[in-house]
Nucleic acid binder design. Structure first.
Length: 816
RNA sequence: GUCCGGGUGGUGAAAUUGGCAAACACGCUGGCUUCAGGAGCCAGUGCCGCAAGGCUUGGGAGUUCAACUCUCCCCCCGGACACCA
């Protein structure tokens, strides 16, 4: 018998599988379709990570099992290749990003192929390929056409030292630029935005149409963050302007001031002199705006949320008290949240309380808590916020009402009086879609002095990225593309006069929004994907990816897909019928794998030492799929030993005879468990079930037919050794991966001896073993138990008050 | 601060979803076989105890005949968001 040498068999079979094209999905096949999607990787310079190998091994096993069960499986792969890391790497190493990208892709491909993953390479896509991003740009034009893309001045991160705008990802938690360490500032700049908020309610409602694990669903719901409240319009004393506040908890008898964001319209009017207030007020406001703009994130954090602000000189009229309440400007109010203005109720909101304390504004208590002390109103821990229990006081017609009831009554009252209108507000914001970088899809827009913003005509797509030597940030806050004169200057498609191209590019998300429909028709030059093919393949049956993408990418791609559905381009309301997420692989030291910690494990080395099958098994065995797990090479040994033992048993323990009843039962139980665990993505227990079977087989022998059943259930997990055993040892026809998944025999899994445990008052005191016969078990088990000396000891002299019998499991005597 | 996970032997973990806690694997101990190679086989391995037996799933309470599993309070670890009105 030759010994198990993975390196002798793995590359051999990888070549055969590729040559025989056994993993190619067939459009419109008669078999039921099954679409397995994994998040396509970012081809970074670091190469393949054992984390990639973990989820792909598992989903590969899953796809292989589905094929064996008779499905026409599509399991594609591609490259999400635009983005900052490549651009930074390119700048540093003076390699063009496109060259770095293709180099990285080549490395990834080589590494992936060594793992024996059954990807359909025929459908490979690359987001940086102009033939691909032509359609990313096309989607943008459609969004524009439907008024879902628009330009707006928004606050962006700005690094004063590098003179460049930064993506949020480039700003560290302390506000420093991750590359140069300088503290960043906020700056107003015109950006492209996508109106995802228009889809907020549908994105929320349609979670009912899909099967996402509860954790993912909650994350989506929280991110959309639906809140029901009321917009209240305040009159301002002496002028015709009004101010609208949004609140979910209108405790208006306690409203003693109003605060507006620095960017609020009212503030702008005062600064512009359109509203008359004292000169000193205007001066203070201008000063405040200047200071808060300059403030870095770091400074804001250092202040520990100390409230700052200035009085505008204006007063609003509180509807229910008729009192004049001052209007202040403060930067703790965010312009884009609600209406950018808040009514201050310092008795019942910590931030309002802090603000009132800081500026000596009266604090009025209108909710009495369960055991609150009204004389302690000046203390922060006495603030009773919405969500706590309490009832209304000092509130006229509301007095005595429970917190929530009073709020509802207030809203009814305000609506009736015409002072306010109930509104729904979402945490979800419109999506900033502009990036000032080179390595992204150019936004297909032309700016003409005469005609304004003109979309690039569809026939001129794609707007290709110019190939240039320099792609460093421009220093003006514009994208590096702005400095490429020949590219920027262009004729206006409408009037023919000279105009300039939009120089912003799209974010990394743009290409990954819709990639899964391109797999279905990767070479289509007329449309992003053929509707007929999409109708056959969509929706995606299972989408598997990391937890880090369960909010943004998932939400963004659902939004874009829904939009495409609305314009009739894709066939279903939701793209992913089912979504599950997996945990990351940590280093042996329990920390995130990273070069700087020196704890990175390279899958290539593991393949070289133990073979791909061992790596794959271990990745699945190491822990629950949805949990983070730490790498441990010692544990890997166990998987290698398992395969070695399997190899030996197939060479030595097969006989031309019937398998023993016990082992046959174990086999069928194993088939059942493996199939079940596959559907629940419990890969770790699949591996342990197979190990258990091998341990039993070692004590006995299998018939050839039963051995074949076992290799079939091992095949999805360890494809190489299984193929070698199937064709080489068992001398069957190529390929085990085209075989049919075995069914277990219901009759064979029934145990003929069962063990009933006997409890007294819920504690196990004995067990009785008996034949598994119909009907008689309960009575017999009780009978036997009562005669058992270990039980008699406990029952002596006691009265049995109750006997509980769980069929096939236990008898419990309850005594006093 | 808010939301979401998680806490079980020396270690990674399992537990049919309320029914024998610790399957499987690593490690360790002893033995066999070989001999210094990350090889193979057998036995043992939660804790205390010579034993009978007792104790044990972060801590505390509760529901139940029965709790790792359900309820409430608290502690610790990880992640996401963060002055969201």
């Amino acid at each position: 018998m030759p010994s198990y040498e993975p390196k002798n068999i793995e590359s051999k079979w990888q070549e055969v599988w590729e040559k025989e094209k056994i993993y190619q999905a067939k459009d419109f096949d008669q078999k039921p379709k099954f679409y397995t999607l994994i998040e396509f990787p970012y081809p970074s310079g670091a190469g393949l990570h054992v984390g990639h190998a973990r989820s792909w091994s598992a989903m590969d096993a899953y796809s292989r099992k589905k094929r064996m069960q008779g499905y026409n499986v599509i399991f594609p792969i591609g490259w999400d290749a635009f983005g900052l890391p490549t651009e930074n790497y390119a700048i540093k190493n003076k390699i063009h990003p496109s060259i770095a990208t293709s180099k990285n892709i080549a490395t990834f491909k080589k590494q992936i192929k060594k793992l024996g993953i059954s990807f359909d390479w025929n459908r490979e896509i690359n987001t940086t390929d102009p033939k691909y991003y032509k359609w990313t740009q096309w989607i943008f034009l459609k969004l524009l056409e439907n008024k879902l893309a628009f330009q707006k001045e928004v606050l962006v991160n700005w690094c004063p030292s590098c003179k460049t705008t930064l993506a949020n990802e480039e700003v560290l938690a302390n506000g420093a630029h991750e590359r140069c360490g300088q503290l960043t500032e906020k700056r107003l700049q015109k950006q492209w935005l996508l109106r995802i908020t228009k889809y907020a309610q549908r994105l929320l409602d349609d979670l009912n149409l899909v099967d996402y694990s509860p954790k993912i669903r909650i994350q989506q719901e929280n991110w959309i963050g639906k809140k029901e409240g009321i917009n209240i319009t305040y009159d301002i004393d002496g002028i015709s302007d009004k101010v609208i506040v949004f609140t979910t908890a209108p405790v208006n008898f306690g409203a003693t001031f109003i605060v507006v964001a620095p960017e609020h319209e009212l503030v702008k009017k005062i600064v512009d002199g359109k509203i008359d207030v004292l000169e000193s007020n205007v001066r203070e406001i201008k000063q405040y705006l200047e200071i808060s703009k300059r403030k870095t994130e770091q400074e804001r954090l250092d202040e520990k949320r100390k409230k700052t602000g200035v009085f505008t000189g204006l007063y609003a009229i509180n509807h229910v008290t008729n009192g004049k309440i001052p209007i202040w400007v403060t930067d703790f109010v965010i312009a884009s949240v609600g209406t950018g203005a808040v009514q201050g109720c310092p008795g019942h909101d910590i931030r309002d309380f802090q603000f009132a304390k800081e500026f000596n504004i009266p604090i009025v208590r209108v909710i009495k808590g369960e055991d609150s002390d009204e004389s302690q109103i000046e203390k922060e821990d006495q603030v009773i916020e919405h969500g706590q229990k309490g009832c209304f006081i000092n509130s006229g017609f509301l007095n005595g009402l429970e917190f929530d009831d009073g709020l509802q009554k207030t809203m009814d009252y305000f609506e009736k009086k015409g002072w306010g209108r109930r509104v729904v507000s979402y945490h979800l914001r419109d999506w900033i879609f502009s990036r000032q970088h080179y390595w992204g899809e150019p936004i297909p827009i032309i700016h003409c002095e005469k005609c304004g913003v003109i979309p690039v005509p569809e026939k001129d797509l794609p707007v290709e990225l110019p190939y240039v030597e320099k792609y460093e940030p421009s220093g003006t806050g514009e994208s590096p593309l702005a400095s490429i004169k020949e590219w920027v200057s262009v004729k206006c498609p409408k009037c023919g006069e000279s105009a300039r191209r939009e120089t912003d590019t799209m974010p990394n998300w743009a290409g990954s929004n819709w990639y899964f429909v391109r797999y279905l028709d990767p070479n289509n030059e007329k449309e992003l994907s053929s509707l007929k093919k999409m109708k056959y393949w969509l929706p995606i049956d299972i989408y598997q990816g990391g937890f880090e993408h369960t909010t943004l990418h998932l939400l963004y791609s659902r939004f874009i897909y829904k939009f495409l559905y609305d314009i009739g381009v894709v066939p279903t309301p939701e793209p992913y019928a089912k979504r599950r997420s997996h945990g990351i692989v940590l280093g042996p030291d329990n920390r995130k794998m990273s070069k700087s910690f020196g704890n990175v494990v390279n899958p290539d080395e593991i393949v070289l030492k133990y073979g791909a099958d061992t790596l794959r098994l271990y990745e699945m065995f190491m822990g629950p799929f949805d949990q983070a797990v730490s790498w441990n090479e010692d544990s890997l040994q166990g998987c290698f030993r398992f395969l070695t033992r399997t190899w030996r048993l197939f060479n030595e323990n097969i006989k031309e005879a019937k398998t023993s009843d016990n082992l046959s039962r174990k086999l069928h139980q194993t088939i059942k468990k493996v199939a079940q665990d596959f559907e629940e993505l419990k890969f770790n227990t699949i591996v342990s079930a197979l190990m258990e079977f091998i341990n039993d087989w070692g004590k006995s022998y299998l018939s050839k037919k039963d051995a074949e059943s076992f290799i079939k259930i091992l095949a999805p997990l360890a494809p190489h050794i299984s193929e070698e055993i199937w064709t080489g040892v068992l001398k069957n026809e190529f390929s085990v991966h085209k075989e049919t998944w075995p069914e277990y025999d219901k009759k064979l899994i029934i145990e003929d001896l069962i063990t009933i445990m006997v409890q007294v008052n819920g504690k196990v005191r004995a067990q009785v073993e008996m034949k598994n016969e119909d009907g008689q078990v309960e009575a017999k088990a009780q009978d036997r138990a009562k005669k058992d000396p270990r039980i008699i000891k406990y029952l002596e002299g006691k009265e049995i008050k109750k006997t509980i019998f769980v069929p096939g499991k236990l008898v419990n005597f309850v005594i006093n």
